[in-house]
Deep mutational scan, measured.
Amino acid sequence: KFNKELSVAGREIVTLPNLNDPQKKAFIFSLWDDPSQSANLLAEAKKLNDAQAPK
């Protein structure tokens, strides 16, 4: 279960257009550290992506 959630969340995070590479890497490392938090980490990444969207 975690492997699928981890890969789905990881793929989504790397495609978020408004995150820079260090931010993406930080989220990916957090996913590896605790795969059970993949849904929460993906939600946080999406929030940050939205907040950094060009206005």
Rank of each mutant, 00 (worst) to 15 (best):
K1G: 12
K1W: 15
K1N: 12
K1Y: 13
K1C: 15
K1V: 11
K1A: 13
K1S: 13
F2W: 12
F2D: 10
N3M: 13
N3Y: 14
N3A: 11
N3I: 13
K4S: 13
K4N: 14
K4M: 10
K4T: 12
K4C: 15
K4V: 13
K4I: 10
K4G: 12
E5M: 12
L6K: 03
L6M: 10
L6E: 04
L6W: 07
S7E: 14
S7F: 14
S7D: 09
S7A: 12
S7Q: 13
V8G: 08
V8D: 14
V8I: 13
A9Y: 06
A9M: 11
G10N: 06
G10W: 15
G10L: 15
G10S: 14
R11Q: 11
R11W: 15
R11M: 13
R11L: 13
E12K: 10
E12N: 06
I13N: 01
I13Q: 01
I13Y: 00
V14T: 08
V14R: 08
V14I: 14
T15I: 07
T15P: 01
T15G: 12
T15E: 13
L16P: 01
L16Q: 03
L16G: 02
L16C: 05
L16H: 03
P17I: 05
P17M: 05
P17D: 05
N18I: 01
N18M: 03
N18D: 01
L19N: 01
L19P: 00
L19T: 01
L19V: 01
L19Q: 00
L19K: 00
N20D: 09
N20S: 15
D21Y: 12
D21I: 10
D21T: 10
D21Q: 07
D21C: 15
D21K: 08
P22W: 14
Q23C: 06
Q23K: 02
K24E: 01
K24N: 03
K24S: 00
K25I: 11
K25E: 14
K25W: 15
K25H: 10
A26K: 13
A26D: 13
A26T: 07
A26F: 13
I28G: 03
I28C: 14
F29A: 14
F29D: 15
F29Q: 15
S30E: 12
S30Y: 09
S30A: 14
L31T: 04
L31R: 00
W32I: 09
W32K: 02
W32P: 02
D33G: 07
D33F: 09
D34S: 04
D34G: 00
P35I: 04
S36V: 05
S36I: 05
S36D: 08
Q37D: 07
Q37V: 04
Q37N: 12
Q37R: 06
A39N: 08
A39T: 08
A39F: 07
A39C: 09
A39I: 09
A39Y: 05
N40Q: 13
L41D: 01
L41K: 03
L42C: 04
A43W: 05
E44F: 05
A45Y: 00
A45P: 02
A45T: 01
K46E: 04
K46N: 09
K46I: 11
K46C: 06
K46P: 01
K47R: 13
K47T: 07
K47W: 07
L48Y: 02
L48C: 07
L48N: 03
L48G: 00
L48R: 03
L48F: 03
N49Q: 00
D50A: 11
A51T: 06
A51N: 06
A51H: 08
A51I: 12
Q52T: 03
Q52D: 02
Q52E: 05
Q52L: 08
Q52S: 04
Q52A: 04
Q52M: 08
Q52K: 04
Q52F: 05
A53M: 08
A53I: 06
A53H: 06
A53F: 05
P54R: 07
P54E: 08
P54T: 08
P54N: 09
K55R: 12
